[in-house]
Design a protein around this nucleic acid. Structure first.
Lengths: 239, 239
DNA sequence: GAGTGGTCTAGACCACGCG
DNA sequence: GCGTGGTCTAGACCACTCG
């Protein structure tokens, strides 16, 4: 985590202060002018940091008054945005186990061709993994990666974290994703790999993931057992 | 919609251009310097507009290259963020009908006291509405509003849009919300008001809505029939 | 090397809340 | 009236891409 950025460093410091309670809920931060003095920087740089805090639900800026610290403990968590299962389970501190159920390189099915904008000649990695949490197989992750962008992949990498490999080893920059959450009927595959406990439906999170150059490189279906699914979001109104 | 803001006006103009296809997908926008010339403004102001476009999934900024137009038609659209049912059904253009099933002012239940941080002496409005789409009752919305902030409310207002009343008539500013999506077993109430078609579970969207001064004024449960629920999101990684 | 976006600065004026 | 955050400016330097 390199931080050449002044505004990011300030954001981090203030966010940590709020998370750890040095800055109390419902009190105001020092004013932007004070902060620019304290951090020996310009007011616009302070404002960049504060806007980040506001976007992420740490503070609420009120014109004429100040920046009020919000209660971030009640948020019970950023499952929002782009987070991989590996990062997620570390955050939650639950015991979890990943099993690679299927792994291979091949021609895309028509559905996958459509999802990843591929031609019949392209090749894709297919990775199917189950996630066991507290003794039960709860989540089935089906990943499809365009070989153009990921020339090489192993089962061992998939047992750890595909994202780590992509970002740290391949140095590809994951930039954004379009996410869709729906509920569907369980498939035979769900029954095969998950402990479904007579549930007839399953929550499906479809993700189209894009790199920094806007190329679509991955399609993911994350299939969650109904009773264990939870999505939390922080949203601001208007702009 | 008053627009004293230069950067918001520029954002709107560019966003419209992208939505209507004047600016083609995968091409770059004019550079920030060009735009600041075209709009007779400073580069920082242009950058504010472009950053908004990036946040909302219209463009991808790439250092050294430019701002690439993304395919926004595939996004099928912002159920994300804070959107009321009224706005939503207008966007989708579907025929829809709202029925107020229960309406009243009273003491909060223990559960609602907890959700809204109330004391036993506070009063809350309870509004239960069903939403009929294409002939079926699909959604049950249960709203609880703190009377401190909403002193007066009628059944007629609830048949239209509570949000419109709050924002346009009361001039209160809704600022942010914490949203949670889970799946639960259907209650008797769900069976009573919705056409459930033998589904045993229901998607519950819980919303805690805050005003500009950070006060919590509304708790909402939006209960959606499984097969009709869909949540779409655009997410950027890191910051 | 020329052009791009990313960061930062030091000022300015405004709208708003509060006493 | 004073302090707050919101907008805007005109410049600067940097890191990056690409020919």
């Amino acid at each position: 985590m390199k931080t050449n950025n002044k505004y990011l460093a300030i954001y981090q410091e203030l966010a940590d202060g709020i998370k750890q309670g040095f800055l109390r809920v419902n009190e105001t931060l020092p004013s932007e002018n004070e902060l620019s003095g304290q951090y020996a920087t310009s007011r616009e740089t302070i404002r960049k940091a504060l806007n980040l805090l506001a976007q992420n639900g740490y503070i609420q800026k009120v014109k004429g008054k100040g920046s009020i610290v919000l209660d971030v403990t009640k948020m019970s968590f950023p499952v929002s945005g782009l987070v991989s299962f590996k990062e997620l389970s570390q955050n939650l501190g639950r015991s979890s186990l990943t099993t690679v159920e299927r792994f291979g390189l091949g021609k895309p099915s028509p559905f996958i061709m459509q999802q990843l904008n591929l031609s019949a000649r392209d090749e894709v990695w297919e990775v199917v993994r189950s996630r066991k949490i507290e003794g039960e197989n709860i989540i089935l992750d089906k990943d499809y990666l365009n070989r153009k962008h990921i020339p090489f992949l192993t089962k061992e990498i998939c047992e750890d974290s595909i994202y780590r490999y992509i970002e740290e080893d391949l140095k590809l920059k994951i930039s954004f994703a379009k996410k869709e959450i729906v509920v569907e009927e369980c498939t035979d595959e769900d029954h095969q790999y998950l402990d479904l406990n007579s549930f007839q439906h399953i929550v499906v999170v479809r993700n189209h993931v894009y790199l920094e150059d806007t190329s679509l490189f991955q399609y993911t279906e994350s299939r969650h057992r109904l009773d264990k699914f939870r999505f939390v979001d922080f949203a601001r109104r208007g702009h």
